[in-house]
Design a binder for these strands. Sequence first.
DNA 1: TATGGGGGTGAAATCCTTTTCACCAGCAGG
DNA 2: CCTGCTGGTGAAAAGGATTTCACCCCCATA
Lengths: 341, 341
Amino acid sequence: MRTQVVTIHDVARAAGVSPATVSRVFNGGRVTPERAQSVQQAAAELGFAPNRLARSLRKQRSSVIALIIPDIENPFFTSLARGVEDAAQRTSLSVVLCNSDEDTDKERRYLEVALGEQMAGVIVAAASQDDTDLGPLIARGVPVVAVDRRPHDAEVDAVRADDQHGGEVATRHLLQAGYRRIACITGPEGASTSEERLAGYRAALHAARSEGIAADDAYVRHADFRVEGGRAAMRELLALPEPPDAVFVTNNLMTIGALDALAEAGRTPPGVGVLSFGDVPWASLVRPSLTAVELPSYELGRAAADLLLQRMEGSAAPLQTVVLRTRLQIRESTAGPVASD
Amino acid sequence: MRTQVVTIHDVARAAGVSPATVSRVFNGGRVTPERAQSVQQAAAELGFAPNRLARSLRKQRSSVIALIIPDIENPFFTSLARGVEDAAQRTSLSVVLCNSDEDTDKERRYLEVALGEQMAGVIVAAASQDDTDLGPLIARGVPVVAVDRRPHDAEVDAVRADDQHGGEVATRHLLQAGYRRIACITGPEGASTSEERLAGYRAALHAARSEGIAADDAYVRHADFRVEGGRAAMRELLALPEPPDAVFVTNNLMTIGALDALAEAGRTPPGVGVLSFGDVPWASLVRPSLTAVELPSYELGRAAADLLLQRMEGSAAPLQTVVLRTRLQIRESTAGPVASD
DNA sequence: TATGGGGGTGAAATCCTTTTCACCAGCAGG
DNA sequence: CCTGCTGGTGAAAAGGATTTCACCCCCATA
């Protein structure tokens, strides 16, 4: 059986010291300069690379953190991932990405890996509010930060956007633009973002009921946060006897699907108003340009990582939830029904 | 100091057997059924989760594989990642993603992590042809597969697309469509995909030199495979005394930048022909629709993972390179200069 | 000249699991 | 009745690092 090419013992022997001293050289213990020197040299000559497993096993903590996201093909999450990476960059930590694919089973497996590999920390955008069990990690004392999505019985720090408020502002904007039959395509039940953006929509419609706006859920559809789901939901809405004249779509990918379905039916914004929660990727290419609730994806990742790092450094501050502001960016797709109807 | 919540010893004690037996229960050794039963039960009651570090340390091999990609924000690579995951899915392996950000330093760090964590295998889309050093991994006997990009002194299995051929077909198509001053925006020098797609372009132009097509590199620009780089390169080309009438862009993101720059200059395809190597994400929203060399991103990941799994099972077949076919998908953006000039 | 203290060092314990090895019991065949 | 297997088991080693602990040396202070 093949074994570790060169271990700390080999270095120790080559440098004429004990393994303990070699370890101290690499971990900032007190060693006389000339000894340190010769250890460094021996290590370099032998091409010594420390066995991180052994190190982590002993230290009860590895030096990688896990970022678990539900959809790696969604630019929102990849941008968030960049934020996490950039924050971790300044430390010696490595970030590994795990794609749960909105699947609680896969997610559970990754959480087990994170636990079993003694990862130093975990940032998770939960696939589900209820089925995501962070208990074992927390029990083990592993720092955990929830990002974007909030697990239900959250005994963890969290970083998220003001989803409900954003949904409300978005819907209000559609009303002000003159749309009257406003639909909402939202994500799966059980995802907090899904629910809260929808709650914002409902609140705005409810507030406008005196103007004869219906606030029942006839125009609400739950889909899957993906392109296909958005397309299917939009088709359904267009097939109604009295189709909506605007749609608030609660994520970027579903907006793409919805736009497809609209094009297919020969309708285009702003004749039918379209408003996306979260910028559509490479929005510059989309004509007409899209009104969207801008989601600070990168900053969410960044903030989550900062919080995690604080905890890893031992901060015992009470649990906190950081809420980042969204901003409505008004463009052509919600110019109002009269403009082109 | 906090220690592992429950170890194999605790389970052993609870079940009245030795640790060795517990291990055998979980690893398919021979154990009498009733003993196995009581071990299972004890483990469940105590909430035993094996320490994967200790296991990997002893086995000299962990059960995760690393996928190192140069740009997590490029949908091509995320789709490739999905392919890898789906293939790994059927085994007990977990995939962790590492984003090297086209930065050989970051990449080196991740390669060190893969080595130090004794990962079971590595799939890498190299940030550079020359500076990516897979030597240590190979020396350690870790299976490695290069995907998409080919490291230069490749002592590894590889899976890639027929880049040169695709580039040639693409350029020929532009010529046939009637374009005469065809530019090429390609990626960084040192990336094999960059070079080979460019080589295809050159070959096609060279073959057409009898028709008075210039085959010097006056219209060639190297950029960074990102949106910004594509935009800048296109601006430069448009500022030439005699700007090109078509452009072959060697990746999807740079195409987006190029389209932006064109729009900014008031030009649109197919007046200026635009052909992308690799589908632009959510191409359905782009008007006019884009001619592209379709790159089987998902299948590349899938094939790479399959190859890696074979090696991990001990296949001693000679090194192989799998080349997947690309396909030119003709759409509106290369309809020809006369059509709208 | 003693005493105390601090810095540097190595032996050995530790982290948790897998795996080797020795052993035992039970059974089949000579 | 003895030999030879085979299947099941536990003790102990192995895997490679970190860290505790005891120790030694040297210098400063009483």
